[in-house]
Computed example of a mutant assay.
Amino acid sequence: MNEDVGHRKRALRAELRERRRNMTATEREQADAALSNNLISLTQDLRARYIAAYLSTPDEPGTREFLRWANEAGIKILLPISRADGLLDWSRYDASQEEEDHDILGMPTSSGELLSPMAINDVDLILVPAACVDQRGMRMGWGRGYFDKTLGSMERCPPVYAVIFDGEFLDSVPSEVHDQKVNGIVTPSGVTQF
């Protein structure tokens, strides 16, 4: 890793984490409601019947209301499970499961059947977390590279959208060779395609 790029990424991630922590409960509630509506619109526009998504943590833009809607609409949902080797396994999401599991990184996931990294190859839409995305569609994650590895290894990749807050859509982000672009972003104010 280029030391300068690595330093700029760490500094930007710290700034973005701080911004997320400083959001008020009302700001977060309004952002999450708008975000859910935009995620629903995107899914309907793409006629997606099988998606890969993730359960948001308290600091992330909310995906949980959208996932409940998708589940009720009969859309099949895969959730990622981090592995020690840097790959992602998958599990089917079922909103009726009250109990959440956590993967090796402490990220929330479903307690459903464990599926291999290959399971994602069948989905119509992939929703990924991100720290930020730039005008070219370059996504900067939180530094572990799980989604970059997954997306980079897919033979036929469906549309990939990063889910971020409005202030995380930037002019440019520092990037490296392994970083993967996304096809679009979903924010509280709308859906942007690249």
Rank of each mutant, 00 (worst) to 15 (best):
91 S>W: 00
69 W>K: 15
160 V>E: 09
58 P>S: 11
7 H>I: 08
149 K>V: 05
169 F>M: 12
82 S>C: 08
110 S>D: 04
183 N>D: 15
54 Y>A: 14
98 E>S: 14
129 P>N: 03
27 E>T: 05
188 P>G: 10
19 R>M: 13
148 D>T: 06
126 I>G: 04
33 A>R: 14
86 G>C: 01
17 R>I: 14
110 S>A: 15
27 E>V: 10
190 G>H: 13
23 M>T: 07
175 S>W: 09
123 V>R: 10
19 R>N: 07
5 V>E: 04
31 A>Y: 02
83 R>Q: 15
25 A>I: 15
32 D>I: 06
28 R>W: 05
115 L>C: 04
130 A>K: 02
130 A>E: 03
168 E>C: 14
117 P>T: 02
93 Y>G: 08
92 R>D: 09
77 I>A: 11
189 S>P: 00
12 L>Q: 05
186 V>R: 12
116 S>N: 06
170 L>A: 09
188 P>Q: 10
2 N>T: 04
37 N>Y: 00
64 R>F: 07
177 V>E: 15
156 R>E: 07
71 N>I: 08
29 E>T: 13
190 G>N: 07
147 F>W: 01
145 G>W: 09
134 D>N: 08
181 K>G: 09
68 R>L: 13
120 I>V: 15
80 P>R: 05
113 E>P: 06
113 E>Q: 12
76 K>E: 11
137 G>E: 01
150 T>L: 14
38 N>C: 04
193 Q>F: 09
111 S>E: 06
126 I>Y: 03
46 L>T: 15
121 N>W: 00
185 I>K: 02
190 G>P: 00
86 G>T: 00
64 R>V: 12
155 E>D: 06
99 E>W: 01
58 P>H: 12
10 R>S: 14
50 Y>W: 11
100 E>V: 07
74 G>H: 00
54 Y>M: 13
14 A>M: 07
159 P>T: 08
42 L>D: 07
126 I>E: 12
118 M>C: 05
27 E>L: 06
178 H>I: 02
120 I>S: 10
27 E>I: 07
194 F>Y: 13
189 S>Y: 04
176 E>C: 05
57 T>S: 15
165 F>H: 12
76 K>M: 04
119 A>K: 10
61 P>L: 10
19 R>T: 03
18 E>W: 09
14 A>F: 02
189 S>M: 04
130 A>W: 00
152 G>D: 10
145 G>Q: 08
50 Y>T: 11
44 Q>E: 15
97 Q>D: 07
164 I>L: 08
176 E>S: 12
166 D>F: 02
154 M>K: 10
182 V>P: 05
161 Y>M: 09
70 A>F: 02
6 G>C: 14
83 R>F: 01
2 N>V: 04
53 A>V: 09
52 A>E: 09
31 A>E: 00
174 P>D: 05
110 S>K: 05
140 M>A: 11
99 E>M: 00
134 D>F: 01
184 G>V: 03
162 A>P: 01
32 D>H: 08
36 S>T: 15
102 H>L: 03
54 Y>E: 08
191 V>H: 10
50 Y>Q: 11
172 S>W: 09
164 I>K: 00
174 P>L: 12
3 E>G: 08
138 M>N: 01
5 V>S: 02
4 D>Q: 14
25 A>W: 10
